[in-house]
Design a protein around this nucleic acid. Structure first.
Lengths: 241, 241
DNA sequence: CGTCAGGTTGATTAGGATCAACACAGGTGG
DNA sequence: CCACCTGTGTTGATCCTAATCAACCTGACG
């Protein structure tokens, strides 16, 4: 189910104000965005965009997580991106979506009608520049993931994924007691498998292996304690950079 | 070895005039680019950019091919992008390179000093918009490659790669006699392996298998005849889109 | 209490990696 | 001119990682 949120949310107090596509906007520009934005929410598991469909809107994620995914005719699925708060959904200038976007948790989006947003890009250099920066960051992220998919072992893939969650989780949500870091996985085992180019079973086995070696501890299915970040980082397999 | 080319090449007669970052520039804007551009050439196998180094310039590829690659400490290598004529090298706004870029054939670049180019982006909306479009295209390409790396079989990877070369090769260079399409591979078996997340041996075996099945014919190592594009496309494994 | 989604674990298989030998073309220098 | 070398590619034998197939567990919920 989807519903339109209370539109009273003001940009000034927006949790992603300083990171999203609006990050570098000044007060006047923000007023324009404020006037045309609208919120939409989706429940976990709901599709946000279908590949092939008209793209009616673009959006920033305010709260929650979504995945970009591509599915082959025989059902094989690869997740192409994990979208977290402040990430941007949609591609200005493109009529039809070429990937599916799915909510993986309950999610709230700050939306703009695509046509209006495309006009904004032309008239508001701050937004165009920020969108370029965001796109280049996503390109780097996609390329880093290509190394993971093409060359890393299952063990390295899991460790890399956990490190990414640690890095991307907003500071207040990462609880560190002593040296232990605690994270909450935004994805099911299946969604992780699709993201890492593995099967559910392999993901589960690798989690079990890391747990048996004391490199992680599990509280339920979703909460992971990491006693030593540096140890896990070593397993993630570093690049030369 | 690297050398500076004759600077008399005029933008108007440039082979990539209508596709590169300068594609949407008007006459005045082109004159500015003309005044600050300079050509550089690299021989096959030479590094163009080292990961970690200062990025002195950004560039468009005029002729030849290069790869973007990332190398792990133990030597595992993944090619992240194949750069062909009109493609853009470098990331405005970034001080140091995070990936290696290597010439895979003799190559000619149309370069701009990074600082000057960054100024251009701010003052020339046509260039900023074109760069955004190019970056979004590269992002799509990277994501398509993620599906290949994460989910496709060796056979599908080779077929997909061949289809990509067919698509990206400029029309005059694709010689079609009857229904047969002929392409020239810009990469060695090793470079293809690094691009496809495979080993040299697997690439070689898959080429042999496709040859034995009559799906391709080889003239030497680099020239590939494809009797039926549609048949090869079917093997490449299609997405749902 | 039964059902179902999500997850774990075990047994077996298979696709591609690894190790190894050899083929071939293009230099290079005696 | 030819012996040699080197880089690139092919093919064979074997191994190993992760996929597949299958059974079972766990907790939530009607």
């Amino acid at each position: 189910m989807e519903r339109v949120l209370d539109p009273l949310n003001r940009c000034e107090s927006c949790p992603i104000r300083h990171r999203a596509v609006c990050a570098t906007c000044d007060t006047d520009e923000l007023a324009v965005l404020e006037s045309i934005k609208y919120y939409r929410s989706f429940e976990a598991g709901q599709p946000i965009i279908f590949s092939g469909d008209q793209m009616e809107f673009v959006a920033s994620i305010v709260k929650g997580a979504a995945t970009i995914e591509q599915i082959m005719e025989d059902g094989r699925k690869q997740t192409l991106g994990l979208l977290l708060p402040s990430d941007f959904i949609g591609r200005p200038g493109r009529e039809n979506a070429i990937y599916d976007v799915t909510a993986v948790t309950d999610i709230t989006l700050c939306c703009f009608r695509r046509g209006k947003f495309e006009t904004l890009i032309e008239t508001t250099p701050h937004i165009a520049q920020r969108l370029l920066a965001i796109s280049l960051d996503e390109l780097d992220a996609a390329r880093d993931w290509m190394l993971l998919l093409g060359r890393k072992t299952a063990r390295e893939k899991i460790a890399t994924f956990l490190m990414m969650i640690v890095r991307r989780t907003t500071v207040p949500a990462v609880v560190s007691t002593g040296n232990t870091t605690q994270i909450e996985l935004p994805l099911t085992r299946e969604a992780m498998a699709d993201y890492l180019g593995l099967t559910i079973e392999t993901v589960s086995r690798q989690f079990s292996a890391l747990r048996k070696e004391g490199l992680i501890a599990l509280q339920g299915k979703r909460i992971v304690d990491i006693p030593s970040i540096s140890h896990l980082r070593a397993i993630a397999g570093s690049s030369t950079d």
